[in-house]
Amino acid sequence: MSISTLLVSELEKTEDKKIGFIFCVCTGKCPGFSKMDMWDFINIIRAEYPVEYAFIHPMLCDEDGERFLAEFLKKDRKYLVAGCAPIMQRKLFKDSFANAGLDVNKDLIPIDARNMTTQEALALVKKTLEETAK
């Protein structure tokens, strides 16, 4: 196998990474999520959307969240994280992603799910997954 073929296959591997979905809810007491039904939201995603799994984490940016990410993140995944502002997510998860051999700019797909109804948040996830698959 030539080097260029190897590079192409590596690239394809990156592009084809399956997506894990994490809903980070800022303790679950954050008023930013009061407009939606968090459980309806996550159950619809895990049952109906093209993701490997979907779950709720109470606060990935706290110390236990960082410990969790250290054990959990895998190289062959992309992670769609619904939570706070994307710019903040990139800052907060940068080290955890780097430690797992991931690039926070490519392997993290951050979306801001605050201040949305369940339907609005689902529409945003759907649109993001469609754009990611392109």
Binding site: T27, M59, K91
Partner: peptide, 13 residues
């Protein structure tokens, strides 16, 4: 009291 308990994200900015 509006501050989310144990949230320290504002420090990052």
């Amino acid at each position: 009291d509006n501050c989310v308990v144990f949230c320290r994200s504002c420090r990052v900015v």
